[in-house]
Amino acid sequence: MRTAIIVFPGSNRERDMVMALRRSFGSDPVMVWHKDTELPDVDLIVVPGGFSYGDYLRAGAMGAHSPVMRTVKERADKGVPVLGVCNGFQILTEAGLLPGALMRNAGLKFVCKNVHLRVETAQSVFTSGYADGQTIAVPVAHNDGNYFADDTTLDRLEDRGLVAFRYVDETGSESDAANPNGSRRNIAGIFNDTKTVLGLMPHPEDAIDPLHGGTDGRGLFDGLARALA
């Protein structure tokens, strides 16, 4: 199995992602520079966190127009799983691979802390390592994680089971207090129609080692490795 991480100017969580992929997949990902138009044959493409192009214009807006993203879209269309975390999620929405947009946090401040997520469905290559409804603890670290989409889009996402993760409290209940950024309907991560593209704001890659303070992020990568094997 091979994985690839797309590196943009300003990506900064690619190292974290390398550690997570290495641990679960047993091999190092291929690092693909954003100007490359060639993407090796891989089983998983990851768009990592960071500040691609300094978040200038809009978070993810310029990254979405990098040469490599055309290829990423083609692969996604063929069903190759694509995971976008944080800035990666922003890029995937800007690139039209996922619906909606990530706006400035409702609190108007960058927020870095642990949050709880409810796994809305374990029926996907990304979430098969979890149980339906399981509550996991992982950190967030972002300035623009406030997920927005119109009601029609949100209803559609819900009806089709395309909400992957929601912000909840430690007992698994949705509340405003558990929502770190004002995301509509507490949405932390969503799938595309075929559930082969996942975007989420939190960082499961920073919760894979007991020394991180928790290992709840492992489920995502371990599940992916098993599902893609």
Partner: peptide, 9 residues
């Protein structure tokens, strides 16, 4: 909490 204290893993 306004500082990313976790990046780099």
């Amino acid at each position: 909490e306004q500082y990313d204290h976790l990046v780099m893993g």
